[in-house]
Amino acid sequence: MRITEDGTNLTARNQYIRMCIARTLIHIMEVKSLEDITITELVKKANVSRMTFYKYYKSKQEVLSDYMYEIVNDYMEDARKRTDIGGLHDYKHICHCFQFFKQFSDFIKILLNANMYSVIINALNNYMDSYVLPTSNRSRYELYYYAGALCNTYIKWVETGMIETPEEIASIVYKHVGRKD
């Protein structure tokens, strides 16, 4: 069972339904602006009822936030299993971060096109507060600074077509913010 950002317990079925709604919304946003998408259209295409939608979400924006939270949570789980990437500020860890999030670049572009940068940074700050801060000797604001630097670099990398490899981007970031925890 997984716990969401708001503390809700999710069964596999609950999580599946939430992800279906999110993926459907993202798919529609590839051709239509968020404001032009109705809940009726979303639930019909996601093959769920309005009641089901409102059981999990209050708004379309909340759907996107939840999906971003899931991505960050998956990253956290993936990084936790890895013994070969070192600490948060190590080159290998930074490289892993860019490699992992590269697969979500289309979703990030959709969020940026919808002027929803806050969804991205809020999920990263939540990650820093929940998973990094309790075991770090750094202040909350140092962690926010670091998350913001990584986030902005990643976004600009995505916007410019990801021409550089994750290793090249990680090398640039490491040179400026990398140091032992």
Rank of each mutant, 00 (worst) to 15 (best):
D129N: 06
G148W: 15
C20F: 05
V158H: 08
G86W: 04
E5G: 07
A149G: 06
T24M: 05
A123W: 04
V158C: 06
S130H: 11
H27Y: 08
A79F: 03
S33C: 02
I94Q: 03
T160V: 05
E62A: 04
N126L: 13
M162H: 07
I163L: 09
I26N: 09
E142D: 08
N113R: 15
Y154C: 08
Y145Q: 12
S105N: 09
L34Q: 00
V63P: 02
T4V: 10
G178K: 13
D84L: 11
M162R: 08
Q103T: 14
S118C: 05
V72G: 12
Y54E: 12
R179C: 12
A79N: 02
I28N: 01
I26M: 12
G87C: 12
E77F: 11
A46Y: 04
K58L: 06
Q15Y: 13
N125I: 13
F98L: 15
V119F: 01
Y131H: 14
S105A: 08
Y141P: 03
E164A: 03
S65G: 12
R140W: 02
S65W: 04
S130I: 12
N14S: 14
T52G: 04
D106Y: 12
K60T: 01
I37A: 00
K92N: 13
A79I: 15
G178D: 05
I26K: 12
R13S: 09
S136H: 05
C20V: 04
A147D: 03
V119C: 13
E159G: 04
I37F: 00
V72C: 13
D84T: 06
I39C: 00
H96V: 15
R80I: 07
H27Q: 14
H96R: 02
Y145H: 14
N47W: 09
V158P: 04
L133M: 03
P166N: 07
T160R: 05
C151G: 11
Q99D: 14
I94S: 06
G178L: 09
T160E: 07
T40C: 00
K45R: 13
E164Y: 01
G86K: 05
P134F: 07
V132T: 14
L25Y: 07
I71V: 14
V48W: 10
I26A: 08
Y56Q: 05
K180L: 10
E30N: 10
M76V: 15
N73I: 10
M51S: 06
I172L: 05
A147E: 04
E41I: 00
I17C: 03
C95P: 01
D36W: 00
E142L: 09
E30G: 14
C20E: 15
N73G: 05
R140A: 01
E77Y: 11
Q15W: 10
I110D: 01
I21N: 04
G87I: 03
V43E: 00
S171N: 15
P134G: 01
